[in-house]
Design a protein around this nucleic acid. Structure first.
Length: 422
RNA sequence: GUGGCUAUGGCGCAGUUGGCUAGCGCGCCAGAUUGUGGCUCUGGAGGCCGUGGGUUCGAGCCCCACUAGCCACCCCA
């Protein structure tokens, strides 16, 4: 039984037995997001490469080296989506949603994303993301609401050891001033910077703040802080976001070094970081991206949103020992004995399933004893033996597996009994 | 892309300085007096020891390459 085929690197199989927790988490996410008015949007898995190059920014790592890009048979450059926001922006414009639906436009997606990276724990090549996008709301209340959505999902899932970090990276008006100040500061410390940071100095000096190299970190510690360079408007927005978080009782810490790796962010940026799960601790990241629509040639439209990694959240929950519950358990196991029993079991099972009950019965020809063991393994709440006597009398005993208590009743009353005793 | 560690039945592991039929736990299947589970006992199925070379009389154990996984860097969800 040699395994010939293995799954591509960085992908995963979610098997029966594990999929239950995914399902529960997804349900919880859809429900929560719905409480804030988000409706699902389903988009193609791949887009024209240009959509991401434009949307995400071609100087970012994601676009410059992590995309799954290929030419299709019509010689078009196609890319598997590395994130969700760019596609949503494209779809909104293409379908004219901004004019035709009431503002703000709130959409969410729950989907695979693809990045060609070296896989490790919490970093897959195909991973799953919940994302929400709110278009047409420039008020800080929108920022605070988006953060609240993420907060509620994480709390509802039972996650405890998570910290919210927020920052403002300013707008196109005040950011150049800050870049200027950073360049000036880091240029004076060139000798202590690593090679990559020397490049960053020209392209995007804010990235240096994020550098993990020790010497860079030391220099960065004394660097000018964005928050000191915000224009009046940006400062006031940031203050309002914080005030609204306070009002909702959402705890956070201001971390002026959060930069985020996608070019479209402006003003508010935030991350939810798990504190006990090793290096891939960011389970949710997001912020405001008011410039994105214009980059696509659309009308200037304010927008906020976040992306949340399903696998990362699942990892974090596991690290905290939070149980999401496993696969559903049968309400009843029907154990047929003999031909008459078998026929009746099939009939009865179909009837009960028609009423919405999860019922299992024998389809492999096991003996009675083996069937009981099986029922036990499945975790069935009740079991019932159907032999000639029961079929003739149309009465049988239901057994509660937990304690072995038995109740005799007519087969016709079984459905009612189960509905009332689950 | 860079560095380190690992690779034995479905899962978790033993395999002594290389030596004759590769073991254990869990799981799976079947039994333990005739129509009943969870405990216990017994038996069974299942591995060309990641792949390909090499050293040797002989390699799961040594050497090389490749592949995959894990950890860190990088980056991000």
């Amino acid at each position: 039984m040699a395994v010939k085929y293995t799954r591509p690197r960085g992908t995963q199989d979610v098997l029966p037995g594990q999929s239950g927790r995914w399902l529960r988490l997804e349900k919880l996410m859809r429900r929560t997001v719905g409480l804030y008015g988000y409706k699902e949007i389903r988009l193609p898995t791949f887009e024209a490469t240009e959509v991401f190059a434009r949307g995400v920014g071609d100087t970012t790592d994601i676009v410059s080296k992590e995309m799954y890009t290929f030419l299709d048979k019509g010689n078009r450059s196609i890319t598997l989506r590395p994130e969700g926001t760019a596609g949503v922006a494209r779809a909104i414009l293409e379908n004219g949603l901004l004019g035709s639906s009431p503002a703000p436009l709130k959409a969410y997606y729950l989907q695979s994303c693809f990045r060609y990276e070296k896989a490790q724990k919490g970093r897959l090549r195909e991973f799953h993301q919940l994302g929400i996008e709110c278009y047409g709301a420039d008020d800080p209340a929108a920022d605070a609401e988006v953060i609240a959505v993420a907060r509620q999902i994480l709390s509802a899932a039972g996650l405890r050891q998570v910290r919210l970090e927020i920052n403002s990276i300013g707008c196109p008006h005040c950011r150049p001033r800050y870049h200027e100040a950073l360049r000036e500061y880091f240029s004076a410390h060139k000798a202590e910077l690593c090679e990559t940071c020397l490049e960053r100095l020209d392209r995007n000096p804010m990235r240096i703040l994020d550098c993990k190299v020790e010497s860079c970190g030391k220099v960065a510690a004394g660097a000018p802080v964005v928050l000191d360079y915000l224009c009046e408007d940006c400062q006031s927005r940031f203050d309002q976001v914080k005030a609204l978080l306070d009002a909702q009782g959402i705890e956070y810490v201001v971390n002026p070094t959060i930069v985020r790796g996608l070019d479209y962010y402006t003003n508010t940026v935030f991350e939810f970081i798990h504190t006990a799960v090793g290096t891939q601790g960011t389970i949710c990241g997001g912020g405001r991206y008011n410039g994105l629509m214009e980059q696509f040639g659309g009308p200037a439209t304010p927008a906020v949103g976040f992306g949340m990694g399903i696998e990362r959240l699942l990892m974090a929950l596991e690290a905290e020992g939070v149980e999401l519950g496993g696969d559903p358990v049968p309400a009843l196991y029907l154990a047929p004995l003999g031909e008459a029993g078998k026929t009746e079991a099939i009939r009865l099972a179909a009837e009960l399933r028609g009423r919405g009950l999860y019922v299992e019965t024998d389809i492999v020809g096991r003996g009675l004893k083996a069937q009981m063991k099986y029922a036990n393994k499945l975790g069935a709440v009740y079991s019932m033996v159907l032999g000639d006597d029961e079929v003739n009398a149309r009465r049988a005993r239901v057994k509660r597996m937990e304690d072995g208590a038995e109740t005799e009743l007519s087969l016709d009353d079984l459905g009612e009994f189960l509905c009332q005793n689950l």
